[in-house]
Amino acid sequence: MEQSKDDVTRRGSFIKIGIGSLAVAGCGAAVFGYQFLSPNVLYEPSPIANVGKPDRFPPDSVTVDLVAGIYIMHAAEGFYALTATCTHLGCLTAWKPDLNIIACPCHGSKFNRRGVKIDGPAPRPLAWLKVWVNDEGDLLVDRSTPVPQDHFVRV
């Protein structure tokens, strides 16, 4: 009788060990499943776009780079870059040279050259992006780094 009771408790503890280790393995699998699911490398274009030599952009001009999704502005104070993505719902905006505005085709938001909203549902002005010149004299824009407004780059 004693023996049998011992047996039962031993059995129970083995089952507990078994279930416990399977539970731990399950939790571990969840953690490493998370690691597995987060990619270690990305096949995404670099946020840094090389837009070429500054003399490509005449003074007081707005240049659209559709591939990079940015505007490169050459103002009297210097160069700056705006994202071309509307802050409303992410449509790609267009530059209207005749009206001197940036207009969003989706819901009618309008911005001026400095990215400030003139009209429409857009909640925020268009973001100013970090611009700098590299050693080879090319103008670079970092699409992932916004900068404060009126942050001009002189070449």
Binding site: F32, Q35, F36, S38, P39, N40, V41
Partner: peptide
């Protein structure tokens, strides 16, 4: 190759 070289536990799976 990606599974082998860059995905965590990719080669194991």
């Amino acid at each position: 190759k990606d599974l082998q070289f860059v995905v965590s536990a990719g080669v194991f799976l």
